[in-house]
Write a protein that binds this DNA or RNA. Structure first.
Length: 651
RNA sequence: GGGCCCGUAGCUCAGCACGGAUUGAGCGCCGGCCUCCGGAGCCGGAGGUCCCGGGUUCAAAUCCCGGCGGGCCCGCCA
């Protein structure tokens, strides 16, 4: 079997040559420097790798430039070279190393043929059981642009880690406990006969804010009646006015639905009490309550699944908060365990149980160990005065549940939860979970802004992921209409769907998660460079060439025929791809691969413009070029597969 | 008040964890290329005190300290 990482052969050879080119006395220092890896020079004309001599020169009391010249000379006169074409001293003290791209091409081609579209997907030596929990949108409204980023990042991680050879399961945490869901369920119970056509998650996305607003106003009005002074009355009136304006807004979006909800809720003596009763009954597992809430959640989830399947996002498991954390009694068990382990950090305030997390972290010594920046970690309430649990407590139960089932747990959750996640991790440490620092990861991501769009959860104003996808598909469809008149209507639809949703995926994964990203249509669906359509177009071009030429991949090619600068560059980039894949998977950075896809596509398009492939007269040159094109096609397949992007074969 | 994240070209970003040689890409703008294997393409140009000020270092966009600007978080919400 050929070696899976062609470029590594070159890198290893460089390291060996450098090591053996210095005197015994310097070898130790050189090895230390090499262990940190060689550098990539800033300009392509400076070779593929570089070794800076400054550090070693300083230790040995030598001039770095001189040392670089010496090393370069020894390497250049060495007969032990296969991949190193030449070594040159440069700058103030660099050894620049140039690869022999023909030898590299041989390795690349045999690797491509051996692994096909698995090329570059280097398997780990230590496969782990990994749970990636992502998306986990509350079942009271459709998935939004924000949960969309979560889903796409999460699914890319799942795909990346699977490709790396880990045993990965994608989990969705259904937050079916808590007041929000109960409000939605209460409203749903009044108007469920109306929710027939259309996507159920969108309907409930309207029922929930409507119900919430109606109940809020009713509650505020009662408080106004009982208000004892003018100031309080004025404040309440102001608040009521605000909510009334919200209900106008909401009603305009479906007057019949709103009116029926209002009429039915008004009949209830005390909606708030009905909602808390529902909450209590659900936590206790009373049958009617369970049936109602589950029916609601399942319908919303049905909508989620429909949306997610368009993006190719699949879950292995749906974990219900009620089952894992509440009905099982796990949350209470945890509270008891904390009471035994750290009674000194617990206090009771008006009946509520509070944990001094800061005290816990000092006591466990994690502040130093984890390099915690904050001096003071806020306290956390574990249990309400009425004995019911809180979200974070239930989340501890879920974290433990996941940690029992996997070596590593990755949670894709918004940055705004950073503090809660830190508190949770400290508690997990307190609960004596082994190696928690490495096993439990909060993979934080930032918000998505969409210029011109206003968001307000009280008004039920959000940017639905469905709308975003529809818009993307529509835009691609218009373009396909313009450019592909020979395609059938069905083909056009298929292309628009795959390329449109792919464009959204690409755009959302292309930006470093810790940055707030701006979603700009002209950027996402621009059909030019740095977009998914551009990459897919490149792939289709490569397929076209291969199809027309009738080329069958073969190792019987003369790599010496690859003399063009673009050919050399393409070979190097593709040979480096496995290194990038490993880095992306190890560092959980899928965006490294979207950047690579773009770079490779740009290179190929430039090449294609300058060099003939099919029309090349010289048979050997033609064959070598076709093998190169075949490699590009294969690498595009592998790399898109690694982050679960689907491409069309015709457009 | 405290903590976290972000600040690089008009716009969107990459490079920063692990310091290294003249910072880069796309869009937009200006100017070229359809006798072409698919123009959803290609080539060229203009455009930057890498937020500011100190420090460490042979070397700072990158590390440290102090500011400034923006976002988020510090609930008996989830």
């Amino acid at each position: 079997m050929p070696y899976a990482r062609p470029f590594k052969l070159f890198e290893d050879e460089c390291a060996n040559l450098i090591k053996s080119s210095v005197s015994e006395a310097m070898r130790g220092a050189v090895e230390d420097a090499l262990n940190r890896g060689l550098e990539t020079p800033p300009y392509r004309s400076m070779g593929e790798l570089a070794y800076p001599c400054f550090e070693v020169a300083k230790v040995a009391g030598l001039n770095p430039r001189k040392l670089a010249e010496e090393i370069s000379f020894v390497i250049s006169s060495s007969g032990e070279r296969r991949f190193v074409e030449k070594a040159e001293a440069a700058g103030e003290g660099y050894v620049n190393l140039y690869v022999n791209h023909r030898e590299l091409a041989k390795e690349l081609f045999s690797s491509i043929i051996a692994f096909s579209s698995e090329y570059g997907l280097v398997k780990t030596e230590r496969p782990l059981k990994v749970i990636v929990e992502h998306t986990s949108g509350n079942p009271v409204h459709p998935l939004t642009i924000g949960t969309g980023r979560n889903a796409i990042i999460g699914d890319s991680l799942v795909s990346l880690l699977k490709a790396r050879g880990h045993m990965v399961k994608a989990h969705f945490y259904v937050n079916d406990v808590g007041l929000q869901v109960m409000i939605a369920a209460y409203g749903y119970s009044k108007v469920k006969h109306r929710i027939m056509g259309g996507k159920p998650d969108h309907m409930i996305g309207l029922v929930y804010p409507m119900t919430n607003a109606i109940v809020e106003i009713k509650g505020l009005k009662e408080r106004l009646k009982a208000a004892s002074n003018d100031e309080e009355r004025a404040n309440l009136t102001k608040e009521i006015d605000e909510w009334v304006s919200i209900t106008y807004d909401l009603r305009s979006r479906d007057p019949e639905l709103f009116d029926e909800l209002l009429e039915k809720i008004s009949k209830d003596e005390d909606p708030r009490r009905a909602i808390s009763r529902l909450n209590r009954e659900y936590e206790e597992g009373v049958r009617d309550a369970v049936e109602l809430v589950r029916e609601l959640c399942n319908r919303v989830i049905e909508g989620f699944k429909e949306t997610l399947s368009r993006l190719g996002v699949r879950f292995d498991q749906w974990d219900w908060e009620s089952e894992i954390a509440v009905w099982s009694g796990a949350a209470d068990t945890i509270i008891n365990k904390i009471s035994t382990l750290a009674p000194w950090a617990l206090e009771t305030q008006e009946g509520a149980l509070i944990l001094d997390v800061d005290k816990v972290s000092s006591n466990l010594g994690v502040k130093d160990e984890w390099g915690l920046p904050g001096k003071q970690i806020p306290k956390l309430t574990l249990k309400r005065a009425d004995g019911t649990t809180l979200y974070t407590t239930r989340d501890i139960a879920y974290a433990l549940w996941k940690l029992e089932r996997a070596n590593k747990v990755i949670n894709v959750i918004g940055v705004e939860q950073s503090l809660a996640q830190l508190q949770l991790k400290i508690i997990l440490k307190l609960l004596q979970v082994e190696d928690i620092q490495n096993r439990y990861v909060h993979y934080a991501y930032e918000l998505v802004r969409l210029p011109g769009a206003k968001m307000s959860s009280r008004r039920g104003r959000y940017i639905a992921l469905d709308d975003l996808l529809n818009e993307a598909v529509a835009r691609v469809h218009r373009e396909v209409e313009k450019r592909g008149p020979s395609l059938t209507e069905e083909e056009k639809r298929e292309i628009a769907e795959v390329v449109g949703t792919g464009a959204v995926r690409f755009a959302l994964v292309n930006v470093t998660p810790s940055k707030t990203m701006t979603f700009d249509w002209d950027q996402v669906i621009n059909f030019e460079r740095n977009s998914f359509p551009f990459i897919n177009y490149t792939y289709v071009r490569a397929l076209g060439i291969l199809r027309k030429s009738g080329f069958a991949p073969t190792l019987n090619v003369d790599v010496a025929k690859l003399i063009h600068d673009y050919e050399r560059e393409l070979v190097i980039q593709m040979a480096r791809y496995p290194e990038l894949f490993v880095q992306a998977a190890e560092e959980l950075r899928p965006e490294i691969l979207t950047l690579f896809l773009n770079r490779l596509s740009e290179l190929f398009n430039s090449y294609y413009e300058k060099v003939n492939v099919i029309r090349e007269r010289d048979e050997e040159t033609r064959k070598a070029r076709l093998m190169l094109v075949y490699s590009i096609k294969t690498v595009l397949e592998s790399c898109t597969k690694a982050i679960n992007l689907k491409m069309v074969k015709k457009m």
